[in-house]
């Protein structure tokens, strides 16, 4: 299977904090790749690095053979038309309604006649089940609906890759099920490559073809979902089973408890 995105020895710091320290991973075409890790491990940052919104300190990211960060602005923008991203909050344009939000990338990047745009938008909305909500304003949508509209927008330009940033956070079980189904179905029917960044272990494991677990800026485990689930690594065990204490300590680093209370 062809490698579409190749992240090679990536280092990135924000201020004094090192977020990635020699991170390497590959995304294969047509697969759903999950990137998992606890909050604060920079999963969203990784997506922004892949999209070229942030620049790494060292290392490179190849998208279909092109070094994302060596591209000029115009070329980068052309490359981004091959990607779609679903933001955590949906990030719909608040002054437009559902229809115009989905139509937005089409109107910006194509010179299609309005009749055709309308058909395309209705098709995308049908795919996420919100054809009937086309006249609602972005502010009138619930969180789950906003995410589905944002998904319709992300696939409006028929991208090759869709990146999902924490798609399940704060969703009720029904919406979660809907989103899972959508990600899986779109991946199959449109031949997409999907990157799902999440810490919802069960949900992601159920749809991902390949899983990366990252911690402290590097990959600690990788493999097919079943392999990772069987991993004996203590960190992976703690993360997958949600144990409160383990390699990631329950306590934030502090002087000895007894000492601080003056008991010895």
């Amino acid at each position: 299977m062809r490698t579409l995105i190749d992240v090679d020895n990536l280092t990135f710091s924000r201020g004094a904090r090192r977020i990635f320290d020699g991170l390497s991973l590959t995304i294969r075409e047509g697969q759903i790749t999950a990137i998992m890790g606890p909050s604060g491990t920079g999963k969203t940052t990784l997506l922004k690095l892949i999209a070229g919104q942030l620049t790494p300190d060292s290392g490179r990211i190849l998208f279909d053979g092109q070094d994302v960060h060596a591209l000029r602005r115009g070329e980068l923008f052309r490359l981004r038309q091959r990607m779609g991203m679903l933001f955590q909050s949906g990030a719909l344009l608040t002054d437009l309604n559902v229809f115009d939000n989905v139509a937005f990338p089409l109107r910006e990047h194509t010179k299609l006649p309005e009749v055709l745009i309308e058909k395309l938008v209705l098709m995308k909305l049908q795919a996420v089940g919100l054809r009937g909500a086309r006249h609602l304003m972005a502010s009138e949508l619930s969180g789950g609906m906003a995410r589905r509209v944002a998904l319709a927008r992300a696939i409006a330009m028929d991208p090759e890759v869709v990146m999902y940033d924490e798609p399940f956070v704060g969703q009720d079980p029904i919406t979660m099920g809907v989103l899972l189904k959508l990600i899986q179905r779109l991946n199959e029917s449109l031949g997409l490559t999907s990157i799902v960044v999440s810490h919802d272990v069960q949900e992601v494991m159920s749809i991902a073809h390949y899983v990366y677990v990252i911690s402290e800026g590097r990959v600690v485990a990788e493999g097919a979902a079943e392999e990772v689930a069987q991993s004996e690594q203590p960190y992976v065990r703690q993360f997958l089973n949600g144990l409160p204490d383990g390699p990631v300590p329950f306590h934030y680093p502090a002087p000895a408890y007894a000492e601080e209370l003056g008991l010895c």
Binding site: K48, A51, Q53, F77, R78, R80, Q81, M83, G84, M85, F87, Q88, S89, A91, L92, L93, T94, F104, P105, E108, H109, A150, R153, M157
Partner: peptide, 10 residues
């Protein structure tokens, strides 16, 4: 994230 979203939509 609307500005980020715009950038992502090229």
């Amino acid at each position: 994230e609307q500005l980020s979203a715009l950038e992502m939509m090229a």
